[in-house]
């Protein structure tokens, strides 16, 4: 790969990662100029073009607009003594949680402990067997599986979900594209079934936040993400929180827990 090809590959990769095309061109030009000034081939100075572009994109990406001051808002989710049984099997027992706008709660627990069931109960797609569930009307919901349609492109997803939220097609696509850039992804005209698992998950997450909801429910949203995308996701979570939304995240990555306001640990029925 000669210097010009390295430059083009860097530029292309930056654009793929959601960096504004003009900014991508400027970053690639700066890198090429720096290599030229040092008298070295860019690959010798910076390494492979795609890897260097990934680092540049992470550094260049700005968090989505959100107020700096962090204030707790009204309650967006209140669970009191929530239980869920499937016939004789008790999946959830006595779950309590109060989540306000501007807070993040993590739901943790072993496989089969009812994390996804709890998210379904909060979303309203699963009926609780007992207890009370109160939640804000405007929610975003990213389920763990089957959150996207394999035969639709990202733009078609944005238009479909936008229509549900009463958004025009143009606004929905523009909003979806902007939110995708925050996760280091530029949507293309490819059906979701042909996207990688990580990119499908990004689409899933973007659809969950399309309408700036008051409560965002995410079920292990980082599956298939690389390290940068994972960090971008948490940057997004904090941006939503700082913008006043309550966020409930199902996770099994324990090192995330020192950054959240509430940790809800579920125990599977076999552990009790």
């Amino acid at each position: 790969m000669n210097a010009a090809e390295w430059h083009a590959a860097c530029d292309r990769r930056l654009a793929e990662l959601g960096v504004d095309p003009r900014e991508a061109r400027r970053l690639a030009d700066d890198s090429a100029a720096e290599a030229l000034a040092s008298g070295l081939h860019p690959a010798e100075l910076f390494g492979p073009a795609t890897a260097y572009a990934t680092s540049l994109a992470s550094a260049a990406r700005q968090p989505l607009a959100a107020p700096l001051a962090r204030a707790r808002g009204p309650v967006v989710l209140r669970l009191a003594g929530v239980t869920k049984r499937y016939r004789r099997r008790e999946v959830l027992r006595g779950v309590d949680l109060v989540l306000r706008g501007g807070e993040v709660a993590a739901v943790v627990g072993a496989n089969g402990s009812g994390k996804s069931t709890l998210l379904g109960v909060c979303a309203g797609s699963v009926k609780a067997s007992g207890g009370t569930v109160e939640r804000a009307a405007r929610i975003g919901y990213a389920p763990q599986q089957h959150g996207v349609a394999p035969y639709l492109t990202p733009d078609e997803h944005f238009r479909l979900f936008g229509a549900v939220h009463g958004m025009g097609a143009r606004k929905a696509v523009a909003t979806g594209t902007r939110l995708a850039a925050g996760l280091g992804w530029r949507p293309r005209d490819t059906v979701a079934g042909k996207l990688s698992g990580g990119t499908q998950q990004k689409l899933n997450v973007v659809l969950g936040e399309l309408d700036r909801p008051d409560l965002i429910l995410l079920d292990e949203p980082y599956q298939g993400f690389d390290q940068d995308s994972y960090l971008d996701l948490w940057a997004q979570v904090y941006a939503w929180r700082d913008a006043g939304a309550g966020v409930l995240v199902v996770t099994h990555l324990l090192h995330d827990l020192d950054k959240v306001d509430h940790v809800l640990e579920l125990q599977g029925s076999e552990d009790r």
Binding site: I139, G147, P213
Partner: peptide, 15 residues
């Protein structure tokens, strides 16, 4: 059958 999961998600957010 194939749209069932997506439709459920859409109804949860208001469809």
């Amino acid at each position: 059958v194939n749209s069932r999961h997506l439709d459920r998600r859409l109804t949860v957010v208001g469809a």
